[in-house]
Nucleic acid binder design. Structure first.
Lengths: 230, 230
DNA sequence: CCTTGTTAGATTGGATCCAATATCCGCGCA
DNA sequence: TGCGCGGATATTGGATCCAATCTAACAAGG
């Protein structure tokens, strides 16, 4: 683990103004990308060494990640990467199903042709992409492109966080089952409705898109959880 | 400010296992209750003295509050209590309007008579309550009572956070204009629909309830912002 | 008189050090 | 042989100390 992190460290370090910012962003990416597995203990000393800083920025970063449920603190026992479960996946999906249509509703009236074209590009890129990590990134950017003009920073931050959280789960599913192609059909349909300015239909499609993803994902996770008990 | 905090400190200290938890919870309450005004600088040394701890638990607490947008960090310049604005109020309302109906949708089928009775009690208490601080607390508990059986911890945490954030704004409005009685009518109607098991109607009423509150609030805030420029 | 450079003070960011608590292993005893 | 107790060790929580940087005041020059 240490070496995996060290590589990221040198490349991204100079972009941040404080060590805490740097550690926080890098740790978040590492957790979301699956570099740090669920349940893995996050020893402060170890991380500090990997990042080339002292324990303090690590502690502050961990605190911030705790607030977004990416790590769990156990007093005097340290922090661990948040576990994943079918229950939690359903939880995240319920949130996405609530806030993403809201974001789209507020954004769609202000979207312009350039935005739709950008979205179409991203979908096309996803068709060609093989790497699951890049795939998740593209998926997030596609969704965020459609919501970007909502003009509601808090809402968009929430959406981004939960897209990323969902992505953490999807990576799991993809590596086991491969990418689910139906999802791309849904993207095309969604973009079509958006381009046509069909607000209600677009929201409907989006809700179903999130719901389908949840159904596929939780089915996979539940099976995985039951077979794991053998 | 120091003295206001000191009073809270003694009464709540023993309930927490770590100083950071204690500082975080107390600071959050102080900000939401308006004890610490919007824009107020949060000097680490000052807070540390008020809480009777060193600067470190204060720093960790501030980091956690930053992640929930209650405080803003400016590198090397310190933290301030998040500002309030009509824009931000609308942002929070948009989030509430999205997630609260979702929570109700998931919870309502599992609510029992005892839950409805508890909610009715809370509404009645609100009719009698004069203090705006207690009023907000009761309002939050009422809403959460209706959502409690959703069985989605993340979603409920989000709802609770944004109810609290909205409450911070409502306190502003109430102290200037007094409590808006229409809100209570909406509560009674909502509870009625819930009791009758009318899921769709209840969600509709709830959405409108949040929306009305937003309309009243932003109108008040916008007026306040324009008159403040004289 | 206004602008700009410089410097002193205040305040945060980060590192190190000490104390408190949990875990783990071995020993004694039933 | 199994269970409980106690100390050693590792790790976190908290305090203190030092360095980096921002703010503000003041002086010099245009």
């Amino acid at each position: 683990m240490t070496t995996d992190l060290t590589r990221l460290v040198e490349t991204t370090r100079p972009r941040f103004r404080t060590a805490t910012e740097f550690v926080e962003a890098t740790l978040r990416a590492a957790i979301l990308d699956g570099v740090l597995a669920a349940g893995a203990p996050l020893r402060q000393e170890e991380l500090a060494a990997a990042f080339g800083v002292s324990r303090m920025p690590v502690r502050e970063a961990l605190r911030q990640l705790e607030a977004t449920a990416l790590v769990e603190f156990h007093p005097h026992r340290g922090a661990v990467v948040a576990e994943i479960s079918a229950e939690d996946a359903a939880d995240i999906s319920a949130i996405r199903a609530a806030i993403e249509p809201q974001a789209l509703r507020l954004s769609l009236p202000h979207l312009e042709k350039a935005d739709f074209d950008r979205a179409a590009e991203l979908i096309a890129e996803m068709d060609a992409e093989k790497d699951f990590g890049r795939m998740g990134e593209l998926n997030r950017r596609l969704h965020m492109t459609l919501y970007a003009r909502a003009g509601r920073p808090r809402l968009l931050t929430l959406v981004e966080q939960h897209l990323a959280a969902a992505d953490r789960y999807l990576r799991f599913q993809f590596t086991a089952l491969g990418y689910h192609p139906q999802s791309q059909d849904e993207h095309y349909a969604l973009l079509g409705a958006c381009r046509a300015g069909e607000l209600e239909q677009a929201c409907q499609l989006l809700t179903e898109h999130v719901l389908y993803a949840e159904t596929r994902l939780t089915a996979f996770l539940r099976e995985r959880e039951t077979t794991a008990q053998d």
